[in-house]
Design a protein around this nucleic acid. Structure first.
Lengths: 124, 124
DNA sequence: TAACTATATTACTGTATAGTTATATTTGCA
DNA sequence: TGCAAATATAACTATACAGTAATATAGTTA
């Protein structure tokens, strides 16, 4: 017992190198853009061409292509080329788990705020 | 059966407004910075003052304070003032679930790469 | 009251990146 | 071969933001 006699409360923490933190941050940064989230949500479990995504999202073609290349580079989507078309699909489903977790947290948060407002109502 | 006779494959997607996507992106953006991740990881389940966090992380005081105010504003940490000190603690544990999910994904990803390299070894 | 300490805030700088326009590249077709 | 379509890329602009230095604010102590 050497390092655990400081405060008795703190759990021993795993050392986190800057490199690991940077990798985790990179992963979150991937999902920190509304347009990329829109693309991923639009794809769902489907395979879609760039043109289809452009139409579905209303964004510019260059913009969509750029975001897709970011996602492709990160291994979140995969690409299948066929003639003139490039078809993309989500190859890393764990992305959706993260999004779902954030979504349900937001819902919970909004519900809490609503219930607080509800309690204030009678005071009007 | 009207909108479901297009491709038969696509699940009906929930409409996603720009506002909702922006909120989700905001949440991910919070975690897309290595220094904020370092602060959250350093805090863990402890309560710490700004000075303690400055010492533990090696970052500048102004920088730590700014990140803490971002996290406070987002409801991820809470603040307790006592005399000259401000004590912060993580108030939203769901943050750690997200981090854990990303971490285990990274581990899985690295293991996959390692096993690929392992198979290539005999070819040397 | 004056000096000191902890924290917050402001102003500034540099960097990263989202969106856009224009262009390059590749493939299919007349 | 030449044109058209789909996609990718390069160059540019504007914006956001992380880090820092300086300063403000508030509490503590001599």
């Amino acid at each position: 017992m050497k390092s655990s006699e400081k405060k008795a409360k703190a759990k021993k923490k795993v050392e986190m190198s800057d490199e690991v933190l940077e990798m985790i941050a990179d992963r979150f940064r991937l999902l920190s853009d509304p347009m990329r989230l829109r693309i991923l949500h639009t794809l769902g479990d489907e395979e879609m061409s760039v043109t289809e995504l452009v139409k579905a999202t209303g964004a510019g073609q260059a913009n969509i292509s750029k975001h897709l290349s970011v996602l492709l580079n990160a291994g979140v989507v995969s690409r299948r080329k066929e003639g003139l078309n490039s078809f993309y699909r989500v190859s890393d489903e764990t992305i959706f788990e993260l999004c779902d977790a954030v979504c349900s947290h937001l819902v919970k948060q909004l519900e809490m705020r609503r219930s607080v407002l509800e309690k204030l109502k009678p005071l009007k």
